[in-house]
Design a protein around this nucleic acid. Structure first.
Lengths: 129, 129
DNA sequence: ATAAGGGTTCCAGTGACGGGAAGGTCAAGG
DNA sequence: CCTTGACCTTCCCGTCACTGGAACCCTTAT
């Protein structure tokens, strides 16, 4: 398969696929004309990467997970640790955002949103004394 | 005030303050020796920026908000729009993360996390058929 | 012969800084 | 007077995971 078909097949942009090769996540073959030729295993890896990225894993996490995926002698505890750490990061991020959401939604509610200049949002940002 | 004091006073890293000058968010004066000299208004702006950034506003939003803050003839509706849009972004992001969290926490729970290779996390990423 | 629609490489930009090098300035201590 | 150390300056590169675009090659159809 050429890169365009692979893109259609995996849902990943062509640019992304080339990037993944660049950073050695996949190693497709080359045809005589220089075109990349993707084998089933390459496509399988790309789908794996797509799903892992969709769960928010970093590229380096993906690299680790892919290595574990291919290692028949892995310990599931190694996989679980990566996932648990990432889950903790997600939770932290959600908490962060919820904090912002709290403050911000109160401010938005308090703002008249008319053509007058008086505004509790700016008052807060300016350090309402 | 020199940049170090301002940093201590505002809680913003020195690098960040210099960056904010670079992108014209603030315009401190210069002493004869080339050192930046910050006036009260500069410090006030920096604190404003710190609070806005802490609420997750982008730098461009901050620029807009700062301009509105300084414009006595603003309409609060303009401020509110910026804040409401940002709030919507935050909500979208939270939903995103919650989706990931859902999937990921189930997978983590399902994984034994021992020294055996069998792992539902990898099974899922690999496209468990 | 040409045009469209693939493919290739390489370079630059994104957002919001952070790290670090190379060098100027200032106050205190010996 | 000299040195030390803590400041300050500019400048450039790196981050993360791509994305856009230029310049060029290959294939197929007309």
């Amino acid at each position: 398969m050429n890169i365009g078909e692979v893109s259609a097949h995996t849902g990943l942009p062509v640019k992304t696929i080339r990037y993944y090769e660049d950073i050695d996540l996949i190693k497709p073959l080359r045809d005589d004309n220089g075109y990349r030729r993707f084998r089933d295993q390459d496509i399988h890896k790309l789908k794996f990467l797509g799903r892992a990225r969709a769960l928010g894993f970093t590229i380096e996490d993906c690299r680790t997970l892919l290595a574990l995926y291919e290692d028949e002698t892995r310990a599931s505890s190694d996989v679980k640790r990566v996932a648990r750490d990432h889950l903790a990061q997600i939770d932290a991020k959600i908490d962060d955002l919820k904090g912002m959401r709290e403050t911000l939604s109160h401010l938005v509610d308090a703002c008249a949103g008319d053509d007058r200049p008086d505004c509790p949002i700016l008052k807060d940002l300016g350090g309402k004394p």
